[in-house]
Design a binder for these strands. Structure first.
Lengths: 202, 202
DNA sequence: GTCAAAACGGACCCAGGGTCCGGATTCTAT
DNA sequence: ATAGAATCCGGACCCTGGGTCCGTTTTGAC
């Protein structure tokens, strides 16, 4: 099956919708007061178009999220340390979580809209699955650390969009402070367990 | 102001609604397919009654939640160790989080409905505020532990209703295993920092 | 028993996600 | 270039579910 590519206008409209949605989410107070009709209007497009292109609200949000996430995904999969695969586990774990935190700080409303969007739990999203299994795998390589699966969940939970929003918005905690607090937290989780040998173990 | 007490029928109906809602939430698959109309019908009451008594959906959920939470609240505020105030901080922290976890396991659907209920973030709920400031205060008494505020948030995040639901439902992790994993996690967070002297410090 | 205050309940309203289909656009083949 | 089919457009329309309103009923104080 040749998988014929979409028509030109379809592609153009798809981009217009993504751009419009992004802009609206940045400007809005809360994600739920940007409606599908709003997005369609802002993109100069009919509602039908928007639903045909993305299926439903969640689909649109996902598409936006994935697009924004792409650079980080690259950096994690094939980039240089401290995010890339060549990093020693004890350094990579904090780096990964810091990246997630920064991403959510930079895309607060969007992340909020997607994670707490209602209907299905954020834990079913495949992007969560990716972060979790990656983190889990890296944690597994940290000597003396058990329960990597749960630990990965728990660490990621510390970067939940609504928590980040609360800390940044309500408690007015500055970005750098939040990053360092998360780093400390992660470190303390990693630090426990058997003596994490200094430099020379034998 | 005498604050005259409610009429008999009002009180009776209020109880009926709470009971009906509780029953429905236990039976349902997802909290969002138990509608306000359903609850009213199940309680043998009109929708108006239900809204007059609780204000809105969130109000009803909150009322239910608080009611279920009451025993634990008592145990924490005036009960014996390990939950009560007489417990040494290092022991009380895990106990508190274990209590939260167990509560969410026992009231999965309800907690889900309230925390991810939509509109306003769970971090604005006053019951969250209570848990957080208590935990924060206890953490503050653990020597060598910094960032109690953030740490309290991060630890509580590990017991978020939808995470618990995911672990118990999707990943089929048994209760006791989850409790011990959480306990390990908490311990590792507490363990770091300065030497937590054995028994004799001087 | 009487009467005002309080509560009842279901018809009603409305926003917002999602669907539908007649008409406009784009691609392909000749 | 152009006919014709495939695809897409867009906004009128539907439907669910939270929340409101008000005529009627219940309660309880005197």
């Amino acid at each position: 099956m040749p998988e014929r590519r979409p028509r030109k206008d379809a592609a153009r409209n798809r981009e217009a919708v993504l751009a419009a949605a992004d802009a609206l989410f940045v400007r809005c107070e809360s994600p739920e007061d940007v409606t599908m009709a709003d997005i369609a209007a802002a993109a100069g497009v009919g509602k039908g178009t928007l639903f045909r292109a993305f299926g439903d609200r969640a689909g649109l949000l996902r598409a936006l999220y994935e697009a924004r996430l792409e650079p980080i995904r690259q950096a994690v999969e094939v980039g240089p340390p401290p995010l890339g695969p060549a990093t020693p586990p004890r350094d990579r774990v904090p780096a990964l979580l810091d990246a997630v935190l920064c991403f959510k700080l930079d895309n607060r409303r969007l992340a909020l809209a997607l994670e707490e969007g209602g209907s299905s739990s954020p834990y079913r999203a495949e992007h969560y699955g990716r972060w979790h299994s990656l983190l889990r795998a890296v944690l597994e390589q940290v000597p003396g650390l058990t329960d990597s699966d749960f630990t990965a969940h728990a660490l990621l939970a510390a970067t939940r969009a609504d928590l980040v929003e609360h800390l940044a918005g309500e408690e007015r905690i500055p970005r750098e402070r939040m990053r360092s607090q998360l780093a400390n937290f992660v470190t303390s989780v990693l630090a426990s367990g058997p003596p994490q040998g200094l430099t020379a173990e034998e």
